[in-house]
Each structure stands twice: as C-alpha cells, then as structure tokens.
Design a protein around this nucleic acid. Structure first.
Lengths: 258, 258
DNA sequence: AATAAGAGTTCAAATAATGAACCGATGAAA
DNA sequence: TTTCATCGGTTCATTATTTGAACTCTTATT
C-alpha cells in the first residue's frame, strides 16, 4: 500500500456520524502504528486536509478540502446546479432526496435532503453506493461506459437483502428497462423496507456523471407513487444534465452511443 | 518532503483558472519526475481525489474531495449558513463578496459571489489570503488566538502595494480599531485600486473560524459607502456566528477573553 | 500516591519511493 | 510518407523515506 493511500485512508475514517477522532482511535481503526498515523496526520494537517482541535486534541477533516472541492465544483457545478431541483423534489415528495457523483467506478453521495418527519429513510453524505442494488447504481449503469458496465457486472453481486438482484442476467434486464423508462426502481434491493427511484445525470460525453434519487419507506409508497416519483427524478436529472452541458438530453444520449 | 505532502502539492496545482492539466505539465510544475508524478496521481485517482479525462488524458480534481468536504461541512456548516447572507450582500452592494475559512493559521477563500458588471474585483475560490494586508486577514486577526496573532505579527509583513501596512505597531492599532468597530477596512493594502471591508465569523470558542468580506474598486467607493458596507458585513458575520453556534455574538466574544 | 490511557517522539531496520532510460502513440513539419 | 518532437506511460536497480517497538510526558481516575 502506498503512503499516499495510507494517508487518504485516514481521511476516509471520518464520517458525518463520527467527524472527530483521537490519535489512538485513528491508529486502531486504520491498523497503522501510532507513530505512522501521527506522521500522516501531521502531513495532512500541514495542507489543511485535517485540523486538530487545540483543546480536545481530536482530529477532524479540514477546510483545505472545502477549498479544493470548490475548485472542482467551479468546473463541474453538479451540486450547485442540482441543489434547487433536489430541494424542490424534497418539498413535493416529502421524502429523502440524494445526489451522488461518479468517481472512478464508484458512486459517492454528495448531498442529501431529508424530509422533516419521523419515519424517513436516512442516507448519509459521504456514503458509497453499490451499483447493482440501489436505484442510483442501476440508473448510473444504464448510462455508464461499456468497460465500467462490464466491470460492475463481473463483480459478485452481493445480496444486501433477500430481494437484491444477484443474477447478472436479471440485472441486465433491469438496466435495459431503466434505459427505456428513463428512471430506475430498487424495491428493497439494498435495505429492507426501502424503495427508491433514481435517474442518471449525463456529462458532455453522454455518460453518467452522477445520479439523483428519492428513497422512501415502502409502507407509504404504492406502486403509482413510485412511478410518479420516478418520472419526477427523471425530469429533474434531464434538466440538470441539460443545464450542465448546454445541450438537449437526447443529443447527450446519442453522443454516448456514437 | 514527505510523500504525502508531494501528493497533496499536486492537488494544489489545480485552480479555478486551470482546472485540468496533463501529466508532463504537472510533473514540470511540481518539479517531480514524470514517473513519480504519475504514481502519485494514480494513488490520488484511486481515492477519487483526482480524475483523468478518458479522452484527453488530462487530470483534474475528483469527486472524492466533494464528498469529504461535505462531511466536514456537516460538522461546520459555515458555507451553508453563510451562503444566503453572501447572496444578500452581493445583491444589495453589487460588489464582490467572499467567504474565507481559517485553516491552521491561513485563510482560504471558500466562496465568492461576483456582481454582474464589467468593472469588478475578481477574487478566486481557493486563494490563500495574507493576514496583514487584507480586510479578511485583519478581521481574522482581531479575533484570533494569542499564539496565532503573535505568529502573524512576527512574520515579515510583505508590502503588496505602496499602501500596505508593514509596521507591526500600525498593524496592531488597525487590529485594535477593527475589534472596536466590528469590521476591518483595507484601503488598497493588497491590491492597488481595491478597497475591502471584512468581519470575523466566530466559532464556539469565540475565536475566528472564518471571515466575510466585500471588495470593490476604490473609484466608486466613497468613505461613507465603505463604512456602510462594513456595518453590513459585520451584521452578517455576527448573524452567521450566532446561527452556527446558537449563542449570542457577545457571549462568544466574551468566551475568547476568558 | 498509584494507575491508566492517550498524545507524542526516537532511531535502527525494513520497505517503499525514485528517476534515468525506455516504449509506443500521436501530431506537426519537412 | 518520412522525420522529428511531444506526450503518456513503464521498468528496475539505486536510494531515501517510512516504519514500529519502546520510550517519555501529560492528564484524568481511583
């Protein structure tokens, strides 16, 4: 494992639920020696990737990350562009809406809007999503590059619930249906009791750069509601794609095939 | 230089103006060997910190950064909280408004709102701001921890323009005035022809965690206008501090002294 | 006062990083 | 269409950085 990977893996230990950790704890979780861990943390601190609370001595993610993220966002304003749509969907559906971004073959949740009600689906910012078992993942695959798709299909399809689609052929037809329909549905494929709909956001080259999804408890989601939400995310994803690229969604879709 | 620092220094090469760079270019600018540079880039890519355009082969900052930045933001929602205020200030003043975040002794510009007019002050997201010669920096120092303040005063005060305050004693009185007034003024201290006003945003401990500032061309900024803008940023910074910490600004200020 | 637990440090040994020289592809110039 | 230049990417013996067991220091607990 490269030193750089080690350093970055330390950053990955932080999450929304555990945004601050002590040195020993970080060393324990990463499996690195305390001395090593500290040296890495010091390097990261020097560049503002990590901050240390001067009082508690705990470490947390630093502002340098915000800075770089903003530089990226200036080039690919996915979040900025999608935000109003996410808010709108969250308001009209009163369910959890989340935006994920593609990052070399993975999907990273980048923003989440939760409804103000007790029984809701909780999605954490910073979560990685499996591609074969979530609405986002399937929507992503429906517009992914051939090699990305192949890699995803070749992996063992982990069964997260009893309903997870684990047969590659079934997955292929799900993807095909998603492409036709314009949005994907995952009926408890990732988490028991949760139904999600998702749609891909396309980049200039016509391939997915991210996804938009709505997750809701099955108990209050009749089939018709799911379809309606699906149409809504698809419309939003389409609009976001067009704004980002300044081209019609159809033009983008065709580009990917050529 | 540690390997980690080398890797991160590659990330620092990207900016809003140059968001994409080729391998040779990155190697040239960083001063590392091409092989080394590539190895580092590959490591960074594996973690989503860097992406490579599959067509042009150029490298750019990756979505993994957005993800981590969002995790941080969940803990310190500075940007989220400040955004509406920034927009409001930008709308009412029709001048450049920018938010900076403290990151171990430095100030990083994290968001900028530019007015839609030709003659305006351009501030880039991702820029580091000197502490002694900008409105933001002085506002920051006015509420900084003692050691941070001392370090800043001890450094040689670089003269960016003929009007930059380079005498530590003068700087100290500027800081004192800022503390009393509630906002700082930098009259062409950093860039010729630019006048800025700034105010500190305080954290739970009462010390600055960031700054809010308005930058405008001197030619259209009479003294009265500057004072008015100063009061506006101060009010906004105060409100943001209160929202972030759920405490009155006075309570926060007193905490720092104790 | 004794004990424990965490943060941080040291230095010989182990391991990972380095870079000169290489290949192959692409594109511009002769 | 041949030549030259440039760029992305790779190899492997040499070299320099990273590693971790054992240490100290500080703080909180019994």
């Amino acid at each position: 494992m490269s030193t750089v990977s080690k350093a970055i893996s330390l950053l990955e230990l932080f999450s929304v639920d555990e945004p601050e950790l002590g040195l020993t704890e970080i060393a324990r979780r990463s499996g690195f020696d305390k001395a090593t861990t500290r040296r890495l943390l010091v390097s990261l601190t020097q560049h503002g990737f990590v901050e240390q609370d001067s009082e508690t001595r705990f470490y947390r993610l630093g502002a340098g990350l915000t800075r770089l993220a903003r530089i990226r966002e200036a080039r690919f304003p996915l979040l900025q562009t999608a935000l109003p749509f996410i808010r709108d969907l969250a308001a009209t559906t009163a369910e959890t809406v989340h935006l994920s971004e593609a990052s070399n073959g993975f999907l990273l949740t980048v923003h989440v809007e939760h409804p103000a009600r007790a029984n809701r689906v909780n999605v954490n910012v910073g979560e990685y999503l499996p591609l074969h078992s979530t609405a986002s993942g399937i929507a992503f695959l429906a517009h992914a590059r051939e090699p990305v798709l192949e890699t995803a299909m070749a992996e063992p399809l982990a069964p997260f619930t009893s309903r997870t689609v684990t047969d590659p052929a079934d997955l292929a037809s799900l993807i095909e249906a998603t492409r036709k329909r314009g949005f994907s549905i995952s009926d408890q494929g990732y988490e028991e009791g949760v139904i999600s709909v998702g749609a891909a956001i396309l980049g200039t080259d016509g391939y997915s750069i991210g996804t938009l999804a709505i997750a809701a408890p099955v108990v209050r989601t009749p089939k018709a509601a799911a379809t309606e939400r699906g149409k809504a995310v698809a419309a939003a994803a389409r609009e976001i794609s067009e704004r980002l690229n300044g081209e019609s969604f159809e033009a983008l879709e065709t580009r990917a095939i050529a």
